[in-house]
Simulated assay, not measured.
Amino acid sequence: MTNYAALLSILLLASGCNAADQTSAGQAKPGAAPATAAAPTKCTSEPCGNTASGEDPQEVALRKANQARDALAASGTDQQRWVFPLFSDTTDPARLQMDVVKAAGFKMRLLPQKGHLVFERPGAVDTFEIAPKELKESTCPQYGVSVIAAGASYALIKKNCPLTEYKPNRYAMTSEYYLYDANSAVMRSVWAAHSGSKDEKFPAAKPAPTIKKVADGYQFSWAGIWPNDPAQKKVEIRNKYSWKANKAGKTELLCTDLTAPKDEALENEMCEGGILPLVSSVRK
């Protein structure tokens, strides 16, 4: 395990996340968000961990993980930064944003109080509604947003919602992947799995989906067993997302199922998935 992945495991443990829900890309099932303590926190349990300062061992681990995250944010590779999700219950503004592709000036920022996810590039800012502003009745009151793959003008994003009892004896867990395309200012859901039982495993995509940029858009691929499927039937998704101008002249991102006959492939059931509401799109 690489050093940054090991430190992510420390961060997950300290923030209440389950490391069993990690993939090889380091995508975390979100839990309590990291926060930097203003002063050392003394142990509240007996016996206390053997730390020189008498701090809670979890606080020590969390501080080290945050230091590693900050170091990677300053000088790490893009892929190393992607390991650390943005958590919706984080209060430190610095940990609610990241450089997605640093050389291109491509940044991502989460605004949990508004439920917005913002993508910024030189001369362009696109803002999407990734969660409802009012979360009291939501099945996903806390979530984490991760970058899985990206280029200068696109990103494959994952949103994880941990197990939540949103009503008495009513449970939900979700994992959803979105494709953000700067050219069309569109963010489409491209893979999603849900669970309504606290006894099921987290509905993670194993293996993680892949995205490839092509001349007229993107090719999305995934092959695996659908999470918690009792039949254990293998599913293959091969979709192409292409740019096309509509009658108004606006660029759209249309889906074609590459496994279907040509006359049945455009926006069929394999392409189902919501398009996130675009709050604003600014071009300077």
Score class of each variant (00 low, 15 high):
Asp216Val: 07
Arg121Asn: 00
Ala152Gly: 06
Ala215Gln: 15
Asn228Asp: 00
Pro141Asp: 06
Met108Asn: 05
Ala131Asp: 05
Tyr177Lys: 05
Pro141Thr: 04
Ile211His: 08
Leu156Asp: 14
Ala149Pro: 10
Ser195Glu: 02
Lys102Glu: 10
Asn183Ala: 14
Leu135Gln: 08
Ser153Gln: 10
Pro122Asp: 10
Lys158Tyr: 10
Tyr171Pro: 09
Leu110Ser: 14
Phe220Gln: 04
Phe202Ile: 02
Pro203Trp: 04
Val147Cys: 13
Ile211Phe: 03
Ala155Phe: 08
Ala215Met: 12
Arg238Val: 15
Ala215Val: 09
Ile225Tyr: 06
Ala155Asp: 03
Arg121Pro: 00
Ala152Lys: 11
Ile157Glu: 08
His194Pro: 06
Asn239Leu: 13
Lys233Asn: 04
Lys167Asn: 06
Leu156Cys: 08
Ser146Ile: 10
Met108Glu: 05
Pro230Ala: 03
Pro209Trp: 03
Asp229Ser: 02
Lys212Asn: 11
Ser146Gly: 12
Tyr171Gly: 06
Glu137Thr: 10
Arg170Val: 11
Val145Leu: 08
Leu110Phe: 13
Val186Trp: 07
Pro209Ser: 03
Trp243Ser: 12
Trp222Lys: 03
Leu163Gly: 09
Tyr178Ala: 05
Ala103Phe: 14
Asn160Glu: 09
Ile148Lys: 13
Tyr171Phe: 11
Phe106Gly: 02
Ala245His: 13
Gly151Gln: 09
His116Lys: 00
Tyr218Met: 07
Lys201Asp: 04
Val145Trp: 07
Tyr154Thr: 12
Glu120Met: 03
Lys198Val: 08
Asn160Lys: 14
Asp181Phe: 14
Lys198Gly: 07
Ala155Ile: 13
Phe128Pro: 03
Tyr178Ser: 05
Ile157Trp: 12
